[in-house]
Amino acid sequence: MSGILASMIDGLLIGSVYGLAAMGLSLIWGVMDVINLTHGSVIALGMFGMYILFAAFPVNAYFLLLPILAAGLLLGLVIYWISVHWVIGRSQLSSLLSTFAVNMMIIGIGTAIWSTSPYNVNFTLRGFTVGDYTFTGNHIAAATAAVIIALALELFLYRTRPGKAIRAVADNREAAELMGISSTMVLALAFAIGIALAASSGALVSTLFPFTILSGAGYQMKSFVVTVLAGLGKPLGALAAGVLLGLLEGAVTPFIAVSWIPLIEFGLFVVVLVAFPKGIFTRATA
């Protein structure tokens, strides 16, 4: 019994990292109606970012999140300009394909540099033991960092001018423009933040598990599941749904072979999508 409990607590901690990743996807999706398919490759870049930084500066890995967030913002601006800016206002499929194209390029370059073999960040925080189960320090630290970043985003969106501008544009782009908000600036900012969140979640994952340049794809799928569960434009909702997904994984892991888990997850994703095609997604047509 304590095995399930421990596995669920583990799931809960990892789930908050899923939630953080999903927040990035959800923010971009909600604000500009772009489904960002560079998400997975940016998560992978976050992992390798942490790997490189930690190799250069072997301090507490969690301090390195700050430069990764900053680099993520810059990268986000670049990706926005390359693939999204030109297709804003065109059909949703255009941005789907253009971000996908950038995804292919990032994965291609990443594979050329790092091949597809596994890497890991060799950093361990001491955990503590309760009964016969040890909570690893890294899991706790990663979850704490994810929650702090999530709360910071919430504060930013609700308490600062640029944050309020983002919400205004998400709500009604035309009205926001009439109020003097430059939607291009806001869209670029929202995209950059979304990418920074994805990169930071990748960095956190890299302190927990070994990874390859292709690892981002799995987390991208999890982000989709979480975003669909949470609904768009609700950052804290995404965090909560991420935790829920983590708990679910933790709860089933002791009972079924690991190889079945993807089937359950992707199956769940499709079923959730199909079960709420209207409720969560399509706008009412007048």
Binding site: I82, L97, S98, A101, V102, M105
Partner: peptide, 9 residues
Amino acid sequence: LVIAGALLL
């Protein structure tokens, strides 16, 4: 992959 991606973009 990079070239395929660039072409698509």
